[in-house]
């Protein structure tokens, strides 16, 4: 059975990963992680392809992909905002930061801005509790946030993007 979503991802990009890991016991999560690194998310046809190559049913692969919060089934923005909702951030006002980001970008948890620049994702705990409230944008961590500071960071990124175009 093949994918019904009519996506046509370039499956050749996965060849190296599958060659290395497809026959390895228990490697499904690793393969999905590497696939997501390549495509930015897990397109449906890629999931079917991985299933066929690893000898799993598509249901099993889909089951794993939907179980873990790391995996995404839709494309994300260039900048992934991971807003921490851990206990320390909660106590120090993470909800107010979320409201400020939502107001600034017009997106809520899990959504992407129309220009494809930002995706907002509320996550459990980033482990930088002493700097709470905290967010990570791609690989960079920003701590001791206030609503104003968070908005300024986003505007800086947007300005940088606009000036580089």
């Amino acid at each position: 059975m093949s994918c019904q979503c009519h996506r046509e991802s370039d499956l050749s990009l996965l060849e190296g990963v599958l060659k290395k890991h497809a026959k390895e016991k228990g490697s499904l999560i690793t393969i999905l992680q590497k696939a997501q690194d390549i495509y930015g998310y897990l397109p449906c046809d890629v999931i079917y392809h991985i299933a066929a190559e690893t000898g799993n049913t598509p249901a099993k692969v889909m089951g794993v992909a939907t179980f873990y919060t790391q995996f995404r089934l839709t494309p994300v923005g260039k900048y992934m905002i991971m807003l921490c909702q851990g206990t320390a951030c909660h106590v120090n006002g993470a909800k107010r930061i979320e409201a400020a980001i939502t107001e600034e970008l017009g997106i809520s948890d899990g959504e992407t801005t129309k220009d494809g620049l930002f995706t907002l994702k509320c996550v459990a705990c980033l482990g930088c509790c002493s700097l709470s409230p905290v967010m990570m944008i791609n690989e960079d961590t920003y701590g001791s946030l206030t609503p104003e500071k968070a908005v300024r960071i986003l505007r800086d990124i947007r300005e940088k993007e606009e000036s580089s175009q």
């Binding site: 206990t87 459990a124 705990c125 482990g127 930088c128 509790c129």
Partner: peptide, 8 residues
């Protein structure tokens, strides 16, 4: 897999 929110 330190998943406990508030622990690092």
């Amino acid at each position: 897999d330190e998943g406990d929110p508030g622990a690092f």
